[in-house]
Design a protein around this nucleic acid. Structure first.
Lengths: 200, 200
DNA sequence: TCGTTTAGTTAACACTGTTAACCAAGCATT
DNA sequence: AATGCTTGGTTAACAGTGTTAACTAAACGA
């Protein structure tokens, strides 16, 4: 594959991601992407099998970037609680500072879920596994009371995702201050998982 | 409006909701609905202005039903903690036993959010206001430590929604037992909001 | 020089939401 | 009884969608 071919592929991805966020996924069409890129609609099919493939690639990119961000920030020299909070913090920061990338991860709806390739699914799990490990350490050190670390990790992630997506999807009451809402929510989520003596 | 007209309207809504859940929203078209109903595509436009209007009506129905379910179950004779848990329980049960109705509520994505009528938004708030009231009572009785009940109510709801939608969207690891996951998560969410002495 | 690959094109197919124009039955008024 | 309005539907059409097939023009290796 030549250089300009790679460039075009990247350009398609960049513009798609941008359009997805600014225009929404309903108005995102192969033709509109092509027009923005400055190329014919069918050219996109030289780089992606179909629209699904394009979107899946975008998802994969975002998952990869989010995972990397967390892995880079978490320092296993830190104590467990600090690692725990660091993961949650980094996850939240990524979502809020790159909403277009974060939202893409959750773009695939249940019906399309079946079509999403298994191996890409496995990659997405990398994030959780780090959290699972930290929780297992915490349990061993007696900092958390948790019989099932895997369930706990997914529960934390689900709650956090709920909080973040409510903010990003603008489902919040206008009376509520967003950053206060997030800070409060994170506090409550972590509090529920750390041993009593540590917090409040 | 005659009887059979109302019947057709109801039939369109029922079949749309059913198709939305079983086939997914990508393949839901006015023509496919019409075919299932046994009528021409344009007949739907006699009852709904456009596809958006149809979907918004479905959302409104679901919100209404969920609100009613909670209002019916919550008994203000109960003590505050029981009311609190009753709301969360009823919300969860509704979502799990009527996934097609629950999911419809969160169908509208951010872009379409602007188009969703304001007065329907206000109706959707009814749910939270009940929760806000309960929290305010709890604070007065010294059962909860919460400086901002509105934020707290939305935070609880966001966390709960995160947990439920992860389950319904089948984003859970196959190793995890769903009902265990939900029970654990609800426990953690409520725990975070009740005063320490009450739990564990 | 001849063939093959590469990177793109245009034309077409079947589908989408939506509108305009039409039609037939029911009903009230003249 | 004839007239016109309303109700509840129809068909035909338009512009836009994902996707495919067939084509072209340039670059490159034998």
């Amino acid at each position: 594959m030549s250089e300009q071919a790679i460039d075009l592929r990247e350009k398609i991805l960049d513009i798609s991601r941008h359009m997805l966020y600014s225009e929404g996924h309903t108005s995102l069409s192969m033709r509109s992407i092509a027009k923005q890129v400055g190329v014919s609609a069918t050219s996109i099919y030289l780089h992606f099998n179909n629209k699904d493939h394009l979107l899946h690639t975008l998802i994969e990119e975002s998952v990869e970037e989010l995972s990397r961000a967390i892995e880079e920030k978490v320092d296993d020299q830190q104590d467990v609680v600090a690692q725990f909070e660091s993961i949650i913090q980094t996850y939240t920061e990524f979502a809020l500072s790159h909403p277009e990338k974060y939202q893409i991860i959750y773009l695939v709806q249940p019906e399309a879920m079946a079509r999403y390739p298994r191996e890409k699914f496995r990659k997405a799990r990398r994030c959780y596994e780090l959290l699972v490990k930290v929780i297992e350490q915490g349990v061993r050190q007696g900092l958390m009371e948790e019989d099932d670390p895997v369930t706990a990790a997914y529960s934390i992630w689900a709650q956090l995702h709920g909080v973040i997506s409510v903010v990003l999807n603008q489902r919040l009451d206008s009376r509520i201050n967003k950053s206060h809402f997030i800070k409060k929510s994170i506090h409550h989520i972590t509090e529920g998982f750390l041993i009593r003596t540590h917090v409040s």
